[in-house]
């Protein structure tokens, strides 16, 4: 079996698990020698197979505490595709579309110009990022019981599933993102709390890491990308459903409501979903929208050829 066949086979296995909503065993059970480079190739192959445009990135394992808890050596990233953003006001997120979702509050940032690493500094990132959003990320590992190694999770697109964004906030009016507190509620009870610093010390540093990581592989972090910079609390199971709200100091609040099938679908696969709504609410909608359209998979070449 060639490397390509193996990568494509594992990518299809993950997609099948997602579509059938049936979790599988970690790929590394069968392929203990799977490398991180292989894992990103599987992620990429699955994205191609899925055929949806990408709208951004999500970072995983950005907190030291989370890495320790899961026994994961370092952070990773996944891609956000067009069907993932959910408009909070268009009905519940159907549980029937997900396996065993978990929710985490995060700071999302919009990258407004191409960032080509490696070697990018925090100052350069700061210039390219103007808008921040309160966000709830819905992760949904395709692996049974969330049992995985970093390579498995990376191949599985870092468990990416859904996201909800709050209203955009201009960073010039928001203070240091490290000191933004987040309070996570479920069904009217406080569930957890965290601070911006839990995302790699600073959500902006998380973007630095991402841009440089992509840069090492000869890729840019594209203009118009939304970056979910990593959970500020641990991920909390959705269980039988319910209403999650996250309140963020200076960034406002964001909600994710989960319900059963038959209720109005929360995400809209046929257009830009939450990102569309966000752009409409934004102070400068037209340029945002066009930027986002341009954001997509880079063309040509093996993005991980330099690994």
């Amino acid at each position: 079996m060639s490397e390509t066949t193996k990568v494509e086979g594992l990518a299809r296995r993950l997609l099948a698990a997602e579509r059938a909503r049936t979790p599988i065993d970690p790929l590394t059970d069968e392929h203990p020698d799977l490398t991180l480079r292989d894992a990103y190739r599987i992620q990429e192959a699955a994205l191609e197979e899925r055929g949806e445009p990408c709208v951004g990135y999500k970072l995983g394992f950005t907190s030291e505490a989370m890495r320790r808890q899961m026994g994961i050596p370092g952070p990773n990233y996944g891609r956000l595709t067009r069907s993932m953003p959910v408009d909070a006001d268009s009905g519940p997120i159907p549980l029937s579309e997900l396996i065993h979702p978990r929710v985490e509050p995060e700071v999302a940032l919009l990258v407004e110009r191409d960032l080509a690493g490696p070697g990018l500094t925090r100052a350069e990132i700061h210039l390219a990022v103007r808008l921040a959003f309160a966000a709830l990320e819905v992760v949904d590992s395709r692996f049974r019981d969330y049992r995985f190694r970093l390579e498995d999770n990376t191949a599985d697109n870092s468990s990416a599933a859904r996201l909800v964004l709050g209203a955009p906030v201009d960073l010039s009016s928001a203070p240091d993102l490290r000191l933004v507190g987040a309070l996570l509620w479920k069904d009217g009870h406080v569930l957890d709390s965290g601070v911006g610093a839990n995302a790699m010390g600073d959500p902006l540093s998380a973007v630095v890491w991402l841009a440089n990581r992509l840069g090492e592989w000869g890729r840019a972090l594209e203009e118009g990308s939304i970056v979910l910079t990593g959970g500020l609390t641990r991920a909390h199971p959705v269980g039988e459903g319910g209403t999650f709200v996250a309140e963020f100091g200076g960034l406002g609040a964001v909600r994710a409501h989960f319900g059963e099938e038959g209720q109005h679908a929360g995400h809209k696969a046929d257009h830009d979903g939450g990102a569309h709504t966000r752009a409409e609410r934004g102070p400068d909608p037209a340029p945002l929208r066009s930027r986002r359209r341009r954001a997509g998979l880079p063309t040509g070449g093996d993005p991980h050829g330099h690994l």
Partner: peptide, 28 residues
């Protein structure tokens, strides 16, 4: 006029983070 519940606070001791907390930790 700041929401004190979601006010984040960090304490470093000799450069190492020792506290990462928010206002809600004090009795809500």
């Amino acid at each position: 006029e700041t929401d004190l519940r979601t006010l984040g606070m960090l304490i470093h001791q000799n450069g190492q983070p020792v506290v990462q907390a928010i206002g809600a930790a004090a009795l809500g």
